[in-house]
Design a protein around this nucleic acid. Structure first.
Lengths: 208, 208
DNA sequence: GTTCACAAGGGGAAAAATCCCCTTTTTCTA
DNA sequence: TAGAAAAAGGGGATTTTTCCCCTTGTGAAC
């Protein structure tokens, strides 16, 4: 009785190659390859047999990993999902885990480690590498030192609005905006508005 | 007589899976898998047999695609190289092509198209998808309206240096810096330094 | 030869950002 | 309960950025 695995990844070369690899694992069989979350949800809605495990890529132009994860949490909350990503993007890892993703793998894992992770998730329910666990901790740390209002200010500071305009947008005095600016400068160890923008982008607080 | 292919990619799961795929192609054989450009250059320097083709991933922490391409251009200019990337990053595509890369594939290519590309590069010397050709044209267009000095200024403007410090760095008068600032504001349709930073990052003139 | 773009630069002023010194009130935590 | 943090704000000064008006010199294209 094979364990079935569905692959959701728009990078066809990788998906097809991965299918070949998984089919060499004893007891595993790839039941389907889908280019995006949309194709997967269509399969689920057609009442086709559910796979034991969904391998879900994060970045896809149409219905990406996080979006698909939300749908699965709402419609098939017991479906086991293992995320695959190129990089340890803290923002996304944290989000996926909160949506019930059972594991998060980086694509630098070797085939043996990969097979081990598949077994873990199917048999025990969860598998996280140390790198991913660390990313979760770092993410919670990096934003936790900023208050809600500070984050709101930071988002607006990363636009071409003058601080006076930002004050108006937030219904505050320019002096308050100056207070937030100073607070962020100290917390983030920057010394200019440009520094704020660069920090926000580097730390994915601002997405472009 | 098999055509040999070397795979350079730090994403082990992908590299191993790709090796399995290529080994199913008649007339092809993977002669080696290397985690980064450094490992590849070591093989070349040890006078091992050169592969017919190098499949080179772009993003690697140690001696990445572009850096490896420079080394190959200088030391083995006739070595055929095919780049593999997740995305059509114009900056990198243009650079790689200038360094003599024979083709640039996105990882969303299917295995048949992939095999076709391998044949093209080995037999005819070159292979580019339409998407990649377009990226090359767009890249030349986006930077072409900026002068060399303006680009230099823009890079420094995207730091926390004051314009006075930038002027000093470029051995110019602050008035000249102001001239460049004004010129970029007009060309890029922005109205502040923040706008410059955001433009540079959105258009990948600045890489973070 | 003429025109335009690029490179480099000037005087001067206004607007925006940064800095330095604070304040009060409310909420949360140890 | 005391203290710290968060939220909101003030007066005032300095620095930096932006803006407005220009300049000269060089090289390339027509």
């Amino acid at each position: 009785m094979s364990r079935t695995v569905a692959i959701v990844d728009d990078h066809t070369l990788f998906a097809q190659s991965l299918k070949n690899l998984i089919n060499t694992f004893d007891g595993y069989e790839v039941s389907g390859i889908y280019k995006n979350g949309r194709e997967l949800t269509h399969q689920f809605e057609a009442n086709r047999a559910k796979p034991n495990l969904v391998l879900l890529d994060i970045k896809m132009p149409i219905m990406d990993g996080p979006e698909t994860m939300c749908w699965l949490k709402e419609n098939y909350p017991t479906q086991k999902v293992l995320a695959l990503s190129m990089e340890d993007d803290e923002e996304t890892i944290t989000f996926m885990v909160k949506q019930g993703c059972r594991g998060y793998l980086l694509k630098d894992i070797d085939p043996d480690g990969f097979k081990f992770a598949l077994n873990k998730v199917i048999e025990e329910g969860y598998f996280y590498t140390d790198a991913v666990s660390d990313a979760i901790k770092n993410k919670e740390k990096s934003l936790s030192k900023l208050t809600k209002r500070e984050i709101e200010f930071l988002s607006l500071a990363c636009t071409e609005m003058t601080y006076k305009e930002v004050a108006s947008e937030m219904n505050l005095s320019p002096k308050t905006i100056d207070g937030y600016r100073e607070s962020l400068f100290q917390k983030l160890n920057v010394k200019s508005r440009t520094g704020l923008v660069l920090y926000a982008i580097k730390n994915r607080i601002l997405l472009l």
